[in-house]
Amino acid sequence: MVQSFLPACMRIRHYVLDWLSSTEGSGRKLPSSREIAARFNVSQPTVVKALQELIREGFLINLPRVGIFSNPDRVGSRKKLWGIVLGDGRWSYLTGEAVMVIFRMTENLMRRDSRYRLKVITMGETMDEEEGWPELSMLSGIFWWIPEDEMLPAIGKLAKTVPVVVVGKQCDEVPCFCRDYNEENYRIASRMLADGCRRLVLVKPDMEVEAAIAGVERACREANADFPEGCVLGNDSASLRDLERMVGLGMTPDGIIFNVPPQEYIPMLNENPAFADAVFYCDAAHITGEWKFRGYTGGVDYEEIAPFLADCLEHPHDKKCMKQIVPFHLEHV
């Protein structure tokens, strides 16, 4: 069992509010306190405390010897409640890319029905090896941005009861939209080589590393250019030192492909005259005004895939809701 970072009362509150959001206006009977206690592995007094707060706030109505019901006057009518989960569910920051894809997808989804509601999930929810996340089962569907690898089996189980769409990570058990780093880097490296570069360096992504490297290798083989193992760097201080050593040995790269945000490298690239003629590739979302950027940019067209993401949440059994490669565009700037 992975323990929650939120108090039990707060987790139960999230669960009940999500349950209420799925009601259609008429009073519905809440599961018993015993059932809820078993679901969350807590005592019944803890459940009663959480429910009493919701009764005082008017979300629930207690009918003695009958049960606890939703209050239609307080809850209203909501057709669907969609969840958004980032990474492991505990992210405290958003990348530019994450903001863009979430905005595009949710904008498309919310335009479809004014009664739709969104909930950003911060993992107060527990994860049980057998049951997954009990609170998430109350949602109408879940959009999951780049989940951790160890979470994928549990996500597959969850998807049997709740529609789940994964973006940014390959997942065999649920619909997923992911980048093809092999093909993307092949196109980028081929363009650089065709424009005269002969010494390329790749700053590898955090995932799909082998595919990313293979794309550059393929382009170099076709152009009869070398791409030795030492030309693959990471986004860390050790890799910065490796790049400095290349410059010191007179082996300055004339093309660098960034598959990650390049902030750690920018001071060196701006200040070292050895890079005056070098060109770079970086996703447009990661290029900032502090960088004297020249070369190629591009990225994923999330506006194009937003309708498909929304379709997969609304119609999870549609045949088109399978693994899809996210469209990629490349341009010189």
Results as ranks from 00 to 15, higher is better:
residue 286 H to D: 11
residue 268 M to S: 09
residue 315 H to W: 01
residue 308 F to C: 07
residue 285 A to V: 03
residue 162 V to E: 04
residue 91 W to M: 09
residue 77 S to P: 00
residue 299 G to P: 07
residue 183 E to S: 04
residue 130 E to A: 12
residue 15 Y to P: 05
residue 283 D to A: 10
residue 50 A to M: 02
residue 83 G to W: 06
residue 117 R to I: 00
residue 197 C to R: 10
residue 74 R to D: 10
residue 290 E to L: 07
residue 301 D to M: 10
residue 195 D to A: 03
residue 117 R to C: 02
residue 169 K to I: 13
residue 119 K to M: 12
residue 151 M to Y: 04
residue 69 F to W: 11
residue 90 R to F: 08
residue 98 A to R: 09
residue 23 T to P: 01
residue 135 E to C: 14
residue 321 C to N: 02
residue 244 E to S: 11
residue 51 L to P: 11
residue 15 Y to E: 08
residue 100 M to C: 03
residue 173 E to L: 12
residue 251 M to C: 05
residue 82 W to Y: 05
residue 31 P to S: 04
residue 273 P to H: 09
residue 145 W to R: 04
residue 279 V to F: 09
residue 328 F to A: 00
residue 24 E to R: 11
residue 229 E to D: 10
residue 293 F to T: 01
residue 330 L to G: 04
residue 86 L to F: 14
residue 11 R to F: 00
residue 52 Q to P: 01
residue 164 V to T: 12
residue 244 E to I: 02
residue 223 A to G: 14
residue 151 M to K: 07
residue 293 F to I: 00
residue 188 I to S: 07
residue 232 V to C: 11
residue 108 N to H: 13
residue 203 V to T: 04
residue 290 E to P: 01
residue 322 M to T: 15
residue 308 F to E: 15
residue 136 L to S: 07
residue 72 P to H: 10
residue 267 P to V: 14
residue 207 M to K: 15
residue 80 K to Y: 00
residue 195 D to P: 00
residue 62 N to D: 13
residue 9 C to T: 15
residue 187 R to T: 00
residue 240 L to F: 04
residue 331 E to F: 11
residue 250 G to C: 04
residue 259 N to K: 02
residue 145 W to C: 08
residue 105 M to Y: 15
residue 92 S to F: 09
residue 139 L to N: 06
residue 90 R to Y: 02
residue 315 H to Q: 12
residue 239 S to Y: 06
residue 5 F to C: 03
residue 69 F to D: 02
residue 125 E to W: 07
residue 43 S to R: 08
residue 105 M to V: 15
residue 158 L to Q: 11
residue 154 A to W: 12
residue 305 I to A: 01
residue 126 T to F: 00
residue 301 D to L: 13
residue 228 P to H: 07
residue 86 L to R: 09
residue 109 L to N: 08
residue 98 A to W: 04
residue 103 F to R: 14
residue 177 F to S: 12
residue 210 E to H: 06
residue 273 P to A: 08
residue 186 Y to E: 14
residue 3 Q to P: 02
residue 43 S to Q: 07
residue 186 Y to A: 08
residue 330 L to S: 03
residue 313 L to K: 02
residue 85 V to M: 10
residue 134 P to E: 13
residue 14 H to R: 03
residue 18 D to R: 15
residue 304 E to K: 14
residue 243 L to M: 13
residue 298 G to A: 09
residue 247 V to E: 10
residue 202 L to E: 02
residue 44 Q to T: 06
residue 314 E to N: 00
residue 206 D to K: 14
residue 115 R to G: 13
residue 329 H to V: 06
residue 213 I to F: 07
residue 51 L to T: 11
